[in-house]
């Protein structure tokens, strides 16, 4: 599964296809102050990016893809996670 729910944030990684759009939207809608970690994200379908833009979670990690970065440029940043994981 290209997205996992960790204790403190949603983790998107690898290739995130359009099919993840709705579950991701549900997950983000159901979280009060969602944080999404994109460190491991290689590529995301446009629909995924739109979900992120619309729900505006705090973003952790720098997406490698310039288009992903351009889509998310206006979203708030979350501080690096407390321990360990590269952000």
């Amino acid at each position: 599964m290209p997205f996992d729910l960790r204790d403190d944030c949603l983790l998107l990684h690898g290739h995130c296809p359009i099919e993840e759009g709705e579950p991701l939207l549900d997950a983000l809608r159901g979280t009060a102050c969602p944080v999404v970690d994109l460190s491991g994200l290689e590529q995301a379908h446009t629909a995924i990016l739109q979900v992120l833009m619309a729900t505006a979670p705090a973003i952790r990690g720098c997406p490698a893809d310039p288009v992903v970065a351009a889509c998310l440029v206006a979203l708030p940043r979350a501080e690096a996670p407390g321990e360990g994981r590269a952000g």
Binding site: H45, T46, D65, V68, C71, V73
Partner: peptide
């Protein structure tokens, strides 16, 4: 987004 991402000579973009 994928199409844009693969475009030749990408310098700067805005969404």
């Amino acid at each position: 987004a994928h199409l844009v991402s693969g475009a030749p000579g990408l310098v700067r973009l805005r969404v």
